[in-house]
Design a protein around this nucleic acid. Structure first.
Lengths: 123, 123
DNA sequence: ACCTTGTTTTGAAAGCTGTCAACCTAGAGG
DNA sequence: CCTCTAGGTTGACAGCTTTCAAAACAAGGT
């Protein structure tokens, strides 16, 4: 399912990743990264993301019945996750399968790292 | 606007933190955590958060002029970060100082951790 | 070709968000 | 007391989000 006309966030292209707490983030990087956080800022999408990231891939047909929401609504949320660059989708026969983009998750995680004394693992 | 208490997120109380990708997140935890991601889902707030987290504390008087936005707008965004449990504020004399809540950032970071970048242990 | 099932798109209603101007409050210093 | 400054609150408006029903699209089976 390749799409090219949408304002999609491409995680490979987001300026990478000094932690938020390391130095003030510039406007450009903030604008690039914020949509990813925004996509995770809805409880339904957060659960969808979690369900998808917990397994190698996940069928929409297993995602939809886990919520008390209509099919179109789930589809809409999946689209938001896709356009944020957090998941990929692929149609195989009748069903559409979603998978997480680990790089995107890793990048967001890196942004939240603290330069803290929490893990002084320097040998 | 009715004066009901706002749904302020208390990071000490958010159910802690198996990574999103470890297992499907339940609805309750998703509802508790999503507001934090949502707060970071705006470029202005992401920069504010970064500016605050980059130093021990930050005066609003130094935050506001960094943006092309009115004082009330910055104040609004700071309130969102506060109610998401991401920052604390304290008035000292004339000025108000903001500081990051490291636990909150750490918690969000932990949620985004991936199970092993190096060793996909075969089951 | 038709029908059935799965997923996405469209259209529309209700509600929420980002922003500013105007106003209000808290302290500091007369 | 009064005034000045730093921040926050209120009210209003445009734009965006969430949601569903209805329609459209895709693939497989009859």
């Amino acid at each position: 399912m390749s799409k090219q006309a949408l304002p999609v966030v491409d995680p490979d292209r987001v300026a990478c990743c000094a932690p938020i707490a390391a130095r003030p983030m510039d406007a450009e990087q903030a604008a690039a990264v914020a949509p990813m956080f925004k996509a995770l800022g809805d409880p339904v999408r957060l659960r969808l993301m979690s369900m998808i990231a917990s397994v190698p891939e996940m069928c929409v047909c297993d995602l939809t019945p886990a919520f008390d929401l209509s099919g179109p609504t789930i589809s809409h949320h999946l689209k938001v996750l896709r356009e944020a660059g957090l998941v990929d989708s692929e149609r195989r026969g009748t069903w559409v399968w979603y998978q997480a983009r680990p790089d995107a998750l890793r990048q967001l995680g890196a942004l939240l790292d603290l330069p803290g004394p929490s893990a002084p693992v320097s040998p």
